[in-house]
Nucleic acid binder design. Sequence first.
RNA 1: GAUCCCGUAGCUCAGCUGGAUAGAGCACCUGCCUUCUAAGCAGGCGGUCGAAGGUUCGAAUCCUUCCGGGAUCGCCA
Length: 598
Amino acid sequence: MFQDRLQAMLVPAVRAAFLDLFNQAPEAGAIGFQPTRPEFEGDATINVFPFLRLSGQGPEQTARAVGGHLVAHVPEVERINVVKGFLNIVISDAYWLTFLGETTGQDILQFPPTGKQVMVEFASPNTNKPLHLGHLRNIFLGWSVGRILGAAGNEVVKVQVVNDRGIHICKSMVAWRMFGNGETPQGSGLKGDKLVGKYYVEFDKVYKAEVAGLMAAGSTQADAEKKAPILLDAQDMLRRWEAHTPELRALWAMMNGWVYDGFNATYARAGVSFDRNYYESDTYLLGKEDVLKGVEKGVFFRKEDGSVWVDNTPEGLDEKVLMRADGTSLYMTQDIGTAIKRFEEFPGLARMIYTVGNEQDYHFKVLFIILKKLGFSWADELYHLSYGMVDLPGGKMKSREGTVVDADDLMDEVVAEARSAGEQLSKLDEFGEEEKSVLFEMIGMAALKYFLLKVDPKKRMLFDPKASIDLQGHTGPFIQYTYARIQSLLRKAGKLSTPTGQLAIDHYRLLPEEKVVIKLLHQFPAVLNESATKLDPSALANHTYDLVKAYNTFYQTVPVLKEEQEDRRAFRLALSMSVASTAKKAMWCLGMEVPERM
RNA sequence: GAUCCCGUAGCUCAGCUGGAUAGAGCACCUGCCUUCUAAGCAGGCGGUCGAAGGUUCGAAUCCUUCCGGGAUCGCCA
């Protein structure tokens, strides 16, 4: 494990310095190093202001004294300088070179196994319409968090809940029966999820027309919205579905089958998969018993009408219904049951993460409190990975207004953009058509994924279609490009390269451009750790960009293969190799691939 | 009304467990391909960190109030 190596070395040294000099030392946790700002000389900086009470001296004196002690006792500390209360520490080149030497050829972004099993739920679509941009943010996020947790040493179980039953499906079913004329994906060539979505839209059109008609005939709006015949049909269908009417179940299974084919195509293209699917049709009756047990335990209470409630006012929330008066269940009831079921199925689960939009913050807050009240020990290990909505330049996405960005269309678009940009550069002459398609797919998808993942998940984000297909600057393709560039170097290096072990570590003077890159590599494990802890891929995404950005500066300033001195050339190749392999692993964590050439 | 999230450059975002002159990308302007991939590099332009108070040696970062945007508070999922 390489994270925070420097910190691990310096913190005890600073404490030792304080003890020797002033007979008392700050708590280890209170000592925080930060990277030295570029305008000063140094690699690590500590601010001694908080410790002046311990030293009883002024900031400059304290910093100098501690710094002097470090220089004398820590071989890796080469020299120091003091600016006001800031103690800037210069770490020896030997330290950085040793770090690089020890880690070359190793995966610094793979931590040892923790022995923990973590479940990540994401995607969780409804089966009445195709996936859209919002799903993509969810899917990329959940997938990436799973990968990151895996890199951090956990065993990850990826799951989705498929909302395959309910009034929404019945709406599509009703409309398909009325207007479908037996249309199938095979017959029409339409992707299954698109076909079912089409009838969902069809339903809504008819419904609106009927509501308008009823209102024209004198109904109130509220009344009309409840009495529209097509809606009554759908409600009736739901009841008969719940009664297991065979003919309806068959229709339902057929249409859902179409949707799954469509979803699977989208998932495959997005590069994601699941270890376990939970179908709501299997789980929607779960949780009732648990709620009733809660009543017995006195954790929940019944109102006069027989409905069951939980009182969360002690937690600063409201009362919440868990079961209707007629004994039927609700969304919350199901979620209670599903969580319990999962922990039964996976007894070793240490954590469960729900990747769900922030409009459900309240729901999950309540869910977790309820499970805790029911006495489940694992209730504290539940986490709602809440992310913000994706806005379009024109405002919010609204499916009814046709302003949704379809996931498949979007992926087509970014890949087409990658193709047109790539062909303009005309450096892919030796690529076959097949190879080109693979490459453009890889590049386009990286542009899209990086665009969605570089932003802090909890923030609402603006999706600018033009910016998302950008291939320059702070983008996925920029990272891919740097990787391909290094691969080209390494191919050309061929047998020229000499093992880094031959580098005379004690005599090599690092160039500033080299040192910046090594330091970013050195920090990388700590960044992975941060991303894993915060369940936030954006930290990793941004650091990967910083790394390759610094590498590009190095690349364009310092000769690698052209370097005459063999040991320098070998060192620079080793550095390049480490950047490439680390960037590749980081991209893997983000769900993106990197090409050997582009 | 209550609760939660957000407000940093023209635009999109970093930075937020308090630290030095607030950073990138895009856009716009200048340079750099007869040396390793120019999807690149170097430089310029651009900021009262929503506002006001407070805590502190020190605040974009912590606290309070206010303003602005959004979400939630359904016996919908």
